[in-house]
Simulated assay, not measured.
Amino acid sequence: MNLEDLKLNITDIIANDDLAVQDKLMEICTFLSNNVPYYNWVGFYFANHETKTLHLGPYFGAATDHTVIPFGKGICGQVANSNQNFVVPDVTAQDNYIACSITVKSEIVVPLFVNGINIGQIDIDSHTIDPFTEADERFLEFVNSEVAKLF
């Protein structure tokens, strides 16, 4: 499995005029989870800058209680403040980690920018310790650049 090979599928999902925005996001989450073996939970969070909270959007994976996350809390909340990718090779080593499931071993969060504003992020949990590489970061930046076209 080569992440580069998946890019065309992402552009095809974005270009599908038969799907609403939320359906495209769900399709992306499902596609990524089904095609990258160590992407065990894939979801989008969207920012409300007035309340300084993130709100869960479409996702694929186990149900989560974390539907609203304050900026600064957990990995996602930190990315909302920093506007930077955050790769966590081992979630047990993070002080400011919000545990979603005992099976989650690592996490990657990449911010989603529209017109230079961080409107949200893609969040991926893995049941594997330290699976994420720079290739994952670049690929997820590409995914978000495509998703940004929807807004």
Rank of each mutant, 00 (worst) to 15 (best):
V110N: 00
E107K: 04
Q78K: 07
K73N: 14
N83K: 03
I98G: 07
S126E: 06
T92I: 15
G77R: 04
G116V: 04
E107T: 15
I102V: 14
T103Q: 14
P89C: 12
V109C: 02
V91E: 10
P70N: 08
N118Y: 03
G74T: 01
F71Q: 07
P89A: 08
T103V: 13
V110C: 04
H127P: 10
C100W: 10
Q84H: 06
V87C: 09
D95W: 04
I119M: 10
Q84K: 06
D123S: 13
G74V: 01
F113N: 07
V109T: 09
D95H: 03
P70C: 13
K73F: 13
N96H: 05
I119D: 04
P111A: 01
Q78S: 05
I122N: 01
S101C: 13
K105N: 11
G116N: 10
V104M: 14
H127T: 12
V88S: 01
Q94H: 10
N118R: 02
I102T: 10
S101R: 11
Y97D: 06
T128Y: 12
K73T: 13
V79D: 00
H127G: 13
N83E: 04
I129G: 05
G74C: 14
H127Y: 15
I119H: 04
V110S: 02
I117S: 09
P131S: 14
V110P: 00
N96P: 03
V88K: 00
F86K: 05
C100K: 11
A80E: 07
